[in-house]
Nucleic acid binder design. Sequence first.
DNA 1: ACTTGGCACTCGGAATCCGGGAGTGCCAGC
DNA 2: GCTGGCACTCCCGGATTCCGAGTGCCAAGT
Lengths: 340, 340
Amino acid sequence: MVEDRRLAVLRAIVEDYVATHEPVGSRSLVERHSLGVSPATIRNDMAALEDEGLIAQPHTSAGRVPTDQGYRVFVDRLSAVKPMSSAERRAIGSFLDGAIDLDDVMQRSVRLLAQLTRQVALIQYPSLTRSSVRHIELVGLAPSRILLVLISDTGRVEQRQVETAAPVSEDLLSRMRTRIIERVNGQRLVDVADRVADITEQFTGEERAAVAAVIASLLETVVERHEERVMLAGTANLAAFGEDFNGAVRPVLEALEEQMVLLRLLGESRTTDALTVRIGHENEVEGLSATSVVSVGYSLGDEIVAQLGVVGPTRMDYPGTMGSVRAVARYVGRTLTEQQ
Amino acid sequence: MVEDRRLAVLRAIVEDYVATHEPVGSRSLVERHSLGVSPATIRNDMAALEDEGLIAQPHTSAGRVPTDQGYRVFVDRLSAVKPMSSAERRAIGSFLDGAIDLDDVMQRSVRLLAQLTRQVALIQYPSLTRSSVRHIELVGLAPSRILLVLISDTGRVEQRQVETAAPVSEDLLSRMRTRIIERVNGQRLVDVADRVADITEQFTGEERAAVAAVIASLLETVVERHEERVMLAGTANLAAFGEDFNGAVRPVLEALEEQMVLLRLLGESRTTDALTVRIGHENEVEGLSATSVVSVGYSLGDEIVAQLGVVGPTRMDYPGTMGSVRAVARYVGRTLTEQQ
DNA sequence: ACTTGGCACTCGGAATCCGGGAGTGCCAGC
DNA sequence: GCTGGCACTCCCGGATTCCGAGTGCCAAGT
C-alpha cells in the first residue's frame, strides 16, 4: 500500500521530469497529480526513494530527478508500451510503401523513426547470415582486377574488388563464375565457406592463384560484412539535449560517427525480438552514459535479421518511444517480407 | 599605397579573428602584426573598411569582425591556398591506400577530410554520366520481381528492383539480358537511352510489357540516379560553432540531413576543377547563412566526375581548408583512376 | 503507524550594481 | 597623411543582494 504510493510517486516524478526537464518538488507534484496526500507525505516518500537510489537531488534544496535506476524501475514496472494511434499507423504504412529497393527501405524507415520519436534513429541492415545466395557475378574491370558481386535473396547486393597477381582471361573468369555459381547458388551464406572450399583444386597450377584470390574475397564478403552497415538519421534532434554542446552533445555525435559503436549499441541482442532498453550507464559506450537506447529486432519472414532503435537523452518519453520503435520495426519487417 | 595597407589591415583582422574568435581592436592588431603604424592610423583604416562594408562592429566600442564581403575579399585577393606539408601528403596517401571498393574510397576520403579540416566534410559519388557500362545483370528474385544490377567501369554498382505485371520466365530473363548487354556493353551511360530505345520492339506482345518495365527501370537508373549520393563525416566538429546550439548548429544539422541540400551545395560547378568558396549568404541554402562551403571537383582519368568539400563556420581558416580540400581531391582522383 | 501542518534552514538563480578595460571617434599638431 | 592625446561608450566579470522553491524534522492529530 505504502509501497504502491511510493512507486506512484516515482512514476509521477519521471513523467513530470520528462515533460518539464526540471527537477520536480513535492508541492508541484501533488498539484499536477491527484495523489490524495499532502506535500509533506510526498517528501517522506521522496526521502525513501532517494535512499533506494531511484531519485536524486542535483543540489540540496532542489527538487528531485530520477536516476538511471529510477528510469529502470519506471520502464520495467511502471510503464506500458504506448501503442500508436491508427492514424499514426497509417502514416507509417504509407511512408514505407513504394520503396524501390533495400537501401530505400532502410532510409525511409530510419527517417521515419527519427521523425516519430524526435530522436536519433538507427537501423542496421539485415544480416546476411540467414539469407542465401541468389546470384554471383564476376566482372573483369581490368586485366588483373575483378569485381565480385554477390546478390542475396534479401535483395542485398555486396560488391568487392579483387586484385590478382597475374592477368585473368575472360575465359577463366567465365569458368570460375560457372563453377562458383553451381556450387553456391541457393545456398545459405553461412554454408558458402564449406561449399567453395575445394574449388581452387579444380584449377591448374597457373590459374590457381587467381581463383584462390577470388574465393578468399568471396569468403570475406560473406563472413566479415555480415551486418556492418548501420544507417543514421535525426542527429539534429540532439538539440533536445540542451544547450551545453561540448558537455553533452559532442561526445554523442562523436560516438555516433563510429560504425563500430553503432553496431555495439544495436548488435548484442539479435536473437530476440523483445524491446531492449539500455539506460544511461547500462550501455557501456563511452560518451553515451547520458543517453538511453531503445532497440528491437525486426524480422524478415519469421527470423530476426537485424535491429533498429533510437538514441536519446535518458529523460526521454519511454512509453512513446518504445511504441514508435516497435511499430516501425513491425512495418519494416512486413515491408521486407513482402518485397522478398 | 594607402589602399595596400588597408587590405593588409583587413587580412590581419581576418587572421586574428579566425585565430581568436574575438572581435579585434586596433591596439592588439599593431601588437600582433608589424604594420609599422600607430593604432590611430589603423583606426582610420578600419573606419574606411567599415564604410566599404568589409568589416563590422558587433556593438559600439568593440573590436571589428569581418563581414561576409570581407571574407570574400580576403579569399579572392589576400590569401593563397596553403599547400600541405609533405608529411601531411604522405598521411593522406597512406590513408587512402588499401581501399577495397568505391564505397570504401568515399568513406575514407570523407573522414580524412573531416579530420584534416576539423570541419564537416562532404563527398559526392562519382557521376555515372561520364562512365560506361561494364556489365548488366538481371536476376529473378521472385516470379514477377526482377533485380536489375548495373556495373559501371568506375566500379560503381547500381541496383534496382523491377516489378512486372506478369511472371517472367528464366528463359525470357536470359534473352533480355543478352539483348540488353549486346546493345549497351561498353557504351557510355549517356548513350544508353538511345541504344535501348527499340529493344522492346524485338519482343512479342506478351513479353513486351515485362521488357518495357525493365528498360524503363534501366533508364531511370542511368538517368535519375546520376549523382544522388553524398557522404558526410565530421558532424561532431560543429562544436567549433560555439555554444548556442539551437541558434547556430541545429539548422546546420538539419540542412545537412537533406541529401538534396548537400547536392545543391556541391553540385553546381561540376564542370570545372577550380576551388569554389561560398561564403555565408552566398550559398542560398536556408540555415547555412552562417557557414562557408569550400568545394572542388575531383577527376577520374581526365574528367571531373564529382565534387567534394567541407562546410564550416564563415570564420574558418580558408587557406588551410582550401589546401586540404584540394589535396584530398587530388588523391581521391588519383586513387580512383588507378583503381579503374 | 501514517499523515499532516508548521517552521527553520539551505541554496541556486535572477536581478542589480559597480568598476575596469578595451575600444572608438575626433582633433590638433607634426 | 600620420600620430598622440583625450573624452566617451559600453561590454563583461565579479560581488552582492534577495527571493522563493524546496527540504528535513518535529510535534500533534487521526
